[in-house]
Design a protein around this nucleic acid. Structure first.
Length: 139
DNA sequence: GCCAACGTTGGC
DNA sequence: GCCAACGTTGGC
């Protein structure tokens, strides 16, 4: 199982909406690197749900429930999306400031390439971030 | 194929 | 609101 981090501007699509909707297509990615990452996702992979811009924090965890398929919101058919399901909220949202203060996390794609909206997260980084956020598996 | 101009994203 | 990073476009 692989780990990822997906960004959304809360004004456009927020964690609350993700929770309310349950399963939601992750559309609108228009960047080739991000597309490559989306296409590599497998059912069962987990991703952090990150609020960019106004909040700048990891606020929840989602799970991939449908692998890469054509993004119908794109005019031309060359973009990809996946479906993700809300797993649960971060008990303590992990902010970008927190991440930047953590030496072990400086290699995160989120830090190194701030404009990339879908980035991979290593197993090690995932564990650190879960620990910082007080994440516990839902019973 | 190079590069300047321009648009978009996202942090501050 | 500003600016840096970076992707895209278009002229040559």
């Amino acid at each position: 199982m692989a780990y990822w981090l997906v960004k959304s501007e809360p004004d456009a699509f927020s964690w609350d909406e993700q929770v309310a909707n349950g399963v939601e297509p992750w559309t609108g990615v228009r960047n080739h690197q991000a597309k490559k990452n989306l296409a590599a996702m497998k059912v069962g992979d987990r991703a952090f749900f990150y609020h960019s811009n106004v909040q700048r924090a990891i606020v929840g965890v989602v799970e991939v429930v449908r692998e890469g398929y054509p993004d119908l919101t794109a005019e031309k058919g060359q973009w990809v999306c996946v479906d993700v399901k809300a797993v649960g909220p971060m008990p303590h949202p992990v902010t970008l400031a927190d991440i930047k203060q953590t030496p072990e996390l400086q290699e995160l794609a989120l830090v190194r390439q701030s404009r990339l909206s879908v980035c991979p997260v290593s197993d090690e980084h995932w564990q650190i971030l879960c620990c910082m956020g007080g994440w516990q598996e839902p019973a």
